[in-house]
């Protein structure tokens, strides 16, 4: 699997009020790697993620997932692709309130009309410690549990890549670290590719690599980051 973004440009609005959220971003997310995207607020992190995940249209450039250009696909084709090849974890969980945890987890696969691999399912559920919570609806779960359900939902179809936009933003630090620990394990042990947007240098330290954005451009790329190193670089950007 390779996901590479080339010359990506995204302009919101037109004329005087036009905002250039992304300005020629090129980056490749490698197989089995945990990449964090960081940068000041408004630097274009979410926009980059949305465009790379085929959730939003681009103004220019291309997004290649295994040599397939996502920017050229129709809405329906993109939607089908998202079902099994791309996973999402959102800051505010975004579980379906009417479905149980298990139904939520199975939703993307069912939409694709596929059956889950039972062994993989057991692995994911056990790793996330959700076995005794499967019959509950989201309102009966804590925030951390809800986010773990969201992770399981993203993992189960074994997508090519999982995008996570500030997944720990709504969690306390202990629960947040547990989640990050799980994400790192799924990369190390299960070979999952993850791209995560975060504001927290400690969260970024769980990743293999940090890409720094500012004003819609990539300004830095750090391998094997530590919290201090990241913090230092961010300071130089004036955050």
């Amino acid at each position: 699997m390779t996901l590479s973004v080339t010359g990506l440009t995204k302009v919101y609005g037109a004329g005087d009020t036009a905002v250039r959220a992304l300005d020629g971003v090129s980056v490749t997310f490698g197989q089995g790697r945990f990449t964090a995207i960081m940068g000041p607020s408004g630097s274009g992190k979410s926009t980059l993620m949305h465009c790379a995940a085929g959730l939003d249209t681009v103004t220019g450039g291309s997004v290649l997932l295994n040599d397939q250009d996502l920017t050229k696909l129709s809405d329906t084709a993109l939607t089908r692709l998202r079902r099994t090849r791309i996973g999402f974890v959102f800051q505010s969980f975004n579980l379906l309130p009417t479905l149980t945890a298990k139904q939520n987890i199975l939703l993307p696969l069912e939409l694709a009309g596929a059956k889950p691999d039972p062994r993989w399912m057991t692995t994911v559920i056990d790793t996330l410690g959700l076995a005794d919570r499967l019959g509950h609806v989201p309102s009966q779960l804590s925030g951390g549990q809800q986010q773990r359900v969201a992770c399981a939902r993203a993992m189960l179809p074994r997508p090519d890549v999982i995008f996570a936009d500030e997944p720990t933003g709504n969690l306390d630090s202990r629960t947040g670290h547990e989640l990050l620990e799980f994400l790192r394990r799924s990369v190390r042990e299960l070979g999952q590719t993850i791209v995560m947007v975060t504001h927290d240098p400690h969260a970024a330290a769980y990743a293999d690599r940090v890409v720094l954005l500012a004003d819609g451009r990539i300004v830095d790329d750090i391998e094997n980051p530590t919290a201090d190193a990241v913090l230092g670089r961010l300071r130089t950007l004036g955050v």
Binding site: T76, T79, R82, N94, L111
Partner: peptide
Amino acid sequence: TRESATLRALGLTRGQ
């Protein structure tokens, strides 16, 4: 609105 968007993100087509 948000739920519908989530469903769309997870792979529900417009028609669906």
